[in-house]
Design a protein around this nucleic acid. Sequence first.
DNA 1: GTCTATAAACAGATAGAC
DNA 2: GTCTATCTGTTTATAGAC
Lengths: 227, 227
Amino acid sequence: MQNDSTPTDASTDASTDAPIDIPAGTRADLIAAGLYLFGHDGFAATSTRALAARAGTNLASIAYHFGSKEGLRMACADEVLRRVSMVTGPAVTPPQLTPDQARQRLEAMLRAMVGFLMQAPQAADIVGFILREMAEDGPALAQIYERFFLHKHREICQLIAMATGRDAESEDTRLLAFSLLGQAVYFRIGQPVICRRMAWPQYGQAEGRAIADRLAANLHAILRAEP
Amino acid sequence: MQNDSTPTDASTDASTDAPIDIPAGTRADLIAAGLYLFGHDGFAATSTRALAARAGTNLASIAYHFGSKEGLRMACADEVLRRVSMVTGPAVTPPQLTPDQARQRLEAMLRAMVGFLMQAPQAADIVGFILREMAEDGPALAQIYERFFLHKHREICQLIAMATGRDAESEDTRLLAFSLLGQAVYFRIGQPVICRRMAWPQYGQAEGRAIADRLAANLHAILRAEP
DNA sequence: GTCTATAAACAGATAGAC
DNA sequence: GTCTATCTGTTTATAGAC
């Protein structure tokens, strides 16, 4: 928790004219290794030696670039936010929509979420990292929560309000939004158990669509049952 | 992975006449410590010293009773199965029910599950241990899956079939059962994030009921929308 | 069965050459 | 910026007294 700006401050790389892109270099390699290993094995179970080896660099570079293993973890959280923001865009307050438009938008969000959670190959590391931080209630979670999750959940609540006419910030609306999110998240978290029960080798194209169809059906059934 | 039956074989304790009860002694203390610490901090982040300290015994007793730290993990999985079986009883095929009876039984199961996941104080360690094994895809998961989870999921599928008239083992029925389970599980996994967004200090009596009511409403909405 | 003491390996962090 | 070598503490597992 010392520097992170001591070396090159890679977020504003002056060596290229591209505005913001996927960074390269040792620093970026270490972050990529962190996203993968922290997500797969957990923070505590990941050694700095394993991180350096996967990044193709040496042990000391972690301390040099991030101060400590913990510093690398937070840098990974920053990178997660940066990439997620590129996909979703800044979470905005949706415009006024008809109930039917709001329902369609919710279904689209749900399907996008399933696709992101289950299939996106380049997103697998990011998803794994976030879920692991959730499971560990890690320090990177607070950052991700404040700067992304909160806004997204509010957006869903507003869409639910437009679709059903209920209050967007009522307790039950917020719980409803979580229950919609939760269905999708569980299919990712429970993947090993679910694949086993479904006799699926893994999540593929067809499996992802079967899940998305089921969750979309649930969504519409729940919304239609509301006042 | 060597012994586990070398010492006293605590599962059939001859010193009491009670058939099967909560065991006592150093071995049981270590398992209790394992359930707590593995669930809270994860397997890798839990040291054998911390386990021994919490169990009020010494470091070497872990190797003596379980062969290794990994052996203690598997013994914890056994204990989870033993206690869960005491609560749920052997998963049985439900008798023939009317659609309305099946719906009511599903709601009762869902509410019991929410109570178990969110509130049961003596079950908190067990729940934490299982969820952690799921997140880590740990070796104890396979055992829990085979001897408990599979049967419970089948039971839910059969109840859904009775409530809606659809095939109990069709792909979509199995996915529907997972989506019902998933909603409940997510509220436990996402607890820190959810409590924050809901402005709840933690899950209590009222919060548990609000969640259960919302999930029950979802359940009936989904079932009613099916053919 | 329980304990202390210790062995052997490994962890994260750092010093200093280049 | 990158690297090797090393310091310092901790880890799991084990040996052996009681």
